[in-house]
Design a protein around this nucleic acid. Structure first.
Lengths: 356, 356
DNA sequence: CAATTTTAGACAAACGTTTGTCTAATTGTC
DNA sequence: GACAATTAGACAAACGTTTGTCTAAAATTG
């Protein structure tokens, strides 16, 4: 049970005291040299000796002890719903990349939308000395006890900056594209209720549709509910829609993953994309470009949203004032999964053929 | 520049001393109660008072201070080449999931295969108090100064356990499948040199091919080199192969992502998968199932490899002896991207047609 | 040369815990 | 009732840093 010397059996690891003793100096002096503390006069000769010794013993100051002194740990905590592929991991990668570039380390904690976890984690992170928090697509009930920046927040919180997509712009981009291709009967998808974007995106679509003079048929709405990040989320909904016999020439998907499931469901029903039905994705995740057919989609700059959030948090930590709302712009990426709508007659024929 | 009260202006956060003062007890007594330290007699009444106060002030002991005392931080560091989608993030998700279940936290650090980073990170992690390291697909030159478990290690290291796939089994599975479908002219892919699996997988394929009486033509070999995790890695290689006019009826891909690029390249050349060419993936990443056509692939239990590695590390940390080599078994997942080989005559005709 | 300033560094407190040792009061035993 | 044993808790050292205060020696000034 005891561990005497957990791994290497050397004399633990070099610390300030050992270094000081070896050099015949006091720990404080060594500390001054290594931190280049201003206002302390240490001759160059001594500085050199100290640095050489630090190098020799591969000394690395304990962040732990340093943090106990009230200094920054250079560490932040990232809260997100889920590990694995898709939206979250893209944002995470943006956050992580920037943090590493700035010599920050980070904890990743996932909560699967469970309230107890979401509320417990900030405290646990604080106990581990993190300086701040980035929360991605996470429903925070109250501002955490640490400087925080959110990405795709579920609700505005005082003192917490939020990085989010311009959903109105996104909705206009996607619906304009479909309208220009002649689509009128468009199936819509509503994201899972636990997704922060679900309602705003839906609302934005409704507004944009009205603006563009497109009708929105409730019978063509698909409500996602499955808590999954694989394409199966949209599969049953699309199958049901196909079986219902209702006509549609395009599907506006909640995200690219849902678009993949949609394409597969259509494919299995003998409907070709984009010849028979156009499919529009959302997010532009990495694999969107390499699907067959490649996905036309609304690109969210996910990595950039992540890095922006991280950057803002670091600024906040260094005392700067940062804006509360940071809106980023989407972009329409036209690929193969959308095409001009067929006229009604052709469509009906296809439908009859397909439904047997 | 100074920060007086970085965030909330309350009296910082509850600590042992404050709690003790409030209760009229010494910090040690409070500590004994909260940690249920055995061998200390504290009457139930006092215990209740302490617990109530801790609750009231939302007291959370500082892991920092605790770790300084030599206790475990309940934190591990995860080393991997890259953030984002694919192989690494699946393994990461397995590791992260298990760690969170065990109330461990973790740092993720990525190094992009850069040597200086790989060698610097273990020390930096130690300075932050991590108890151990999981290194995924990472080329470690020497055993880190902390208990370590690797996944898909590049080279064996003394005292470091490694979780890896049974590549011979995998090669037999894939080549048997292709042989049974009648494929003889099979294009092979060699992974990027920085990928730990590249050589072993190649060698395993060569061996399995010999075993099964399949010939391996060097002209049908594709060498990946691009440091990317998008399907573009295989795209140029396949295009070149097609242009060369060499005949092949199947492509054995290094991974699913490469398979996606392969399918796309074939598709663009007017070759249908699996009708004209069968494509076999490797890994079975989440989206493999939802490609069109869905990928036949060799499943690596990536999540499980991650969780196994994490589990082993925790065991090691608690003093148990763990095996040095943990081999996991692959599984053939047959989907749509492979089909019986067409006979040579048909193939040639197709080729002529395609090449114009 | 005496007085002052600067230099080079030591010393000690503090950060928030854990834990070994100590003590006063209470309880139990004969 | 005298003694021992137990109970309830205090006290202090330690972990590895940082940092404010102090001091002896050296250098500068008049």
């Amino acid at each position: 049970m005891h561990k005497s010397s957990s791994n290497s059996n050397g004399p633990r690891h070099a610390n300030l005291k050992m270094l000081a003793e070896y050099l015949g100096l006091s720990p404080s002096t060594v500390s001054f040299v290594l931190n280049e503390t201003p206002g302390r006069s240490i001759p160059e000769a001594t500085r050199a000796r100290v640095k050489a010794a630090a190098e020799k013993f591969n000394y690395r100051p304990s962040m732990i002890a340093r943090t106990l002194q009230g200094k920054r740990m250079q560490t932040i905590g990232i809260l997100l719903p889920e590990l694995g592929e898709g939206y979250h991991s893209q944002v995470l990668s943006g956050v992580g990349d920037l943090l590493m570039r700035k010599d920050y380390f980070y904890f990743t904690v996932h909560h699967r939308h469970r309230k107890e976890l979401v509320s417990a984690y900030p405290g646990l992170l604080r106990a581990r000395g993190v300086d701040g928090i980035v929360a991605i697509d996470t429903h925070l009930e109250e501002p955490p006890p640490l400087p925080t920046v959110t990405v795709a927040a579920h609700n505005p919180l005082p003192g917490v900056s939020n990085v989010f997509l311009d959903e109105d712009h996104a909705a206009r981009l996607s619906l304009t594209h479909l309208r220009d291709l002649g689509h009128k009967k468009i199936a819509f998808m509503h994201g899972q209720p636990f997704s922060s974007d679900a309602d705003t995106r839906w609302l934005a679509s409704v507004n944009a549709a009205r603006e563009l003079g497109l009708e929105l048929h409730e019978e063509l709405a698909i409500y996602l509910s499955k808590d999954s990040h694989s394409p199966e989320i949209s599969y049953p909904g699309i199958r049901k829609l196909i079986k219902s016999g209702r006509q549609f020439t395009a599907v506006l998907c909640f995200n690219d993953v849902a678009a993949m499931g949609t394409i597969r469901a259509l494919h299995e029903a003998g409907l070709r994309v984009p010849d028979d039905v156009s499919v529009l994705g959302f997010d532009d995740i990495q694999s969107a470009e390499y699907q067959v057919p490649s996905l036309t989609t609304i690109r969210q700059p996910l990595q950039k949203m992540g890095s922006t959030a991280a950057q803002l948090l670091l600024k906040k930590l260094s005392g700067e004032t940062i804006p509360e709302a940071i809106q980023v712009e989407p972009e329409l990426v036209v690929r193969e999964s959308t095409a001009p709508a067929k006229d009604a007659a052709t469509r009906s024929a296809v439908y009859r053929a397909v439904r047997r």
